[in-house]
Design a protein around this nucleic acid. Structure first.
Lengths: 213, 213
DNA sequence: GACCATATCCCACAAACATGGGATACCTCT
DNA sequence: AGAGGTATCCCATGTTTGTGGGATATGGTC
């Protein structure tokens, strides 16, 4: 009997949502919530071949490791697990990052319980499902002509420095490649950090490679 | 009263489907089928500001002008009209061509009447909807990274650390999020650097985000 | 002319990082 | 039992980075 149940895990830091969904799923006759954890780290700690669920409902904005990073880890090890991202975020960047990383579905947190149930069934059956608002964004992504991004807030020289950072160069190497003093590089980087509201190379590289700059 | 009805047009050459859907929609209390035509040409002949519907259900495989060409014409002139492609085709090429041309939804012809109703309501309300099979294909389109890459040379814990780096976290933050000592993080990172032949966070982030890991 | 953004350079200090050495413990495989 | 890989921790040292102050010079703009 248990073999026919869809085994669902939920990774969500909000206690109310996690427990609410967990109890709702357990009340259904064709699925069971086998794990309900507040973070990817907690989940990974108990994940193994025996405990592996069929479907994971995962929040994106988790404390510690982000849901997207967690998904990459999990699917790398367990490619058969279907993951539904479950989030309040509407922003395109996260949506596409999730889809590219292999999410099978993307639901907003205002999704009703029956819709969550339906999504789990569909995905377990090999389908995919997205909240209408998300589908909308995916559609927009395909709508041609939508290329014009707002101009970068960075000056030409600053962008040049960012390129250097992305290439993994140190301040010294950027200075040499641009034929300027390392002090100038430092000044540029200070200004870049202010403009982008970041505090490390890592964040700049991430923003740049994900198309935010 | 009529003003509150969603005005729907259907362009479909199969008489049975066209009339069936048309009658079903007219039987609903919140929508009305104002036009039911077998081709884009017939439809365009009577389309004007007065007759313009809110939503169009359009077949792709039409005699004469294809549904995709028709959609481009219609949306160019009437950008507020939402168009749902309605088809038997599963093939990715048509799906993506439709989405790029501006379709707001994509339903397979085996979709039930109530689901068609729901799709029209969602789309008229600003959303989008796709059949699960279609959503699946769209998802797959994003699963670019799924080239059976040779397994990462990194262990799971090391991958976890890499994810932290990519998320812009410091050693301290990675340590906290993983509930391990910062010294352990340092050791992992030393090993990661050796395995990847790099010498900085920046290079790891770059390799990771460009799919090399 | 005053103002502001840009680009260039310098100094100083604290924090974070890179790298070299260790160590212990647990597994698995031979 | 021993070898090898993984995961955990510690120390020391030097380098790089992050951030706060400066300074000068060149443009455009109001």
């Amino acid at each position: 009997m248990e073999e026919l149940m869809i085994q669902v895990a939920i990774i969500e830091d909000d206690d109310v949502i996690r427990e609410g969904v967990s109890e709702y799923l357990d009340g259904l006759d064709n699925m069971i919530c086998t794990m309900a954890k507040p973070s990817v780290e907690h989940f990974l700690a108990i994940l193994n071949r025996e405990t592996a669920p069929d479907v994971i409902l995962m929040d994106i904005g988790l404390p510690g490791m982000s849901g997207i990073s967690g998904m990459k880890l999990i699917t790398a090890e367990y490619p058969d697990i279907c993951i539904i991202m479950f989030t309040v975020y509407h922003d395109s960047h996260r949506i596409f990052e999730s889809l590219c990383a292999g999410a099978s579905g993307y639901l907003l947190k205002n999704t009703s319980f029956p819709e969550i149930k339906q999504a789990i069934e569909v995905i377990h059956g090999g389908g995919s499902m997205m909240s209408p608002q998300i589908a909308r964004k995916v559609m927009e992504h395909f709508h041609t002509g939508r290329k014009r991004r707002d101009p970068s807030p960075l000056t030409r020289k600053e962008q040049e420095v960012v390129m250097g950072l992305v290439d993994g160069l140190s301040y010294k190497m950027i200075a040499d490649s641009g034929c300027i003093s390392i002090e100038t590089v430092r000044t540029h980087i200070k200004n870049i950090y202010k403009k982008l509201h970041v505090h490390s190379k890592a964040e700049v590289i991430k923003k740049s490679l994900s198309g935010e700059i």
